[in-house]
């Protein structure tokens, strides 16, 4: 069962809220302080991508973020309502290697939604070791998880 579940209308201004909530819950769950910045960035990227997909597909349903504290890890699932987006962590890797082409990478990243979408996935795959991008009948889901350190037992 989810520790915290968040649904927000697909507006860019709410992505910050999702970042703050995710970081707060991750901290409580025992995710290392040094990794919290990564959690914040990764969940922001996933939510930005979902907001972009909802807006470009005219989906009025909210973006869903599920934060789950498990025994040894903390996971975040960001769900969009778009079926068959064809996204994938592999695409993110391609975007990352495109960045080494100097000026030509400008074409890839220039303002268009698709380029930003790919760069978002590139950042997520670069940041998070355990990441899974799936697309089902209910839409796409980016699932990320981080190890947690067990709480220190008080004497």
């Amino acid at each position: 069962m989810a520790t915290v579940e968040l649904r927000f209308s697909a507006q860019p201004e709410h992505v910050r809220t999702a970042r703050l909530v995710a970081a707060a819950v991750a901290r409580r769950a025992g995710v290392d302080e040094a990794v919290l910045d990564e959690v914040r960035l990764a969940v922001g990227e996933a939510c930005s991508r979902a907001v972009g997909l909802h807006r470009s597909h005219g989906i009025t349903a909210p973006v869903k973020v599920v934060l789950t504290e498990e025994e040894k890890n903390f996971s975040i699932e960001v769900g969009d309502g778009v079926t068959g987006t064809g996204g994938g962590a592999g695409n993110g890797g391609d975007a990352a290697s495109g960045g080494s082409d100097g000026a030509s990478s400008g074409d890839l990243y220039e303002g268009d939604a698709e380029g930003e979408d790919e760069m978002g996935l590139a950042v997520i795959s670069g940041l998070v070791d355990d990441v899974e991008v799936t697309t089902g009948d209910d839409g796409g889901v980016i699932r990320m998880s981080w190890p947690t350190t067990p709480a220190v037992t008080m004497p």
Partner: peptide
Amino acid sequence: DFLDSTGLGVLVGGLKRVR
């Protein structure tokens, strides 16, 4: 305090324009 890929996209767009 915080920069994401959307921000990177804007910077690359700026670079392309000045170039």
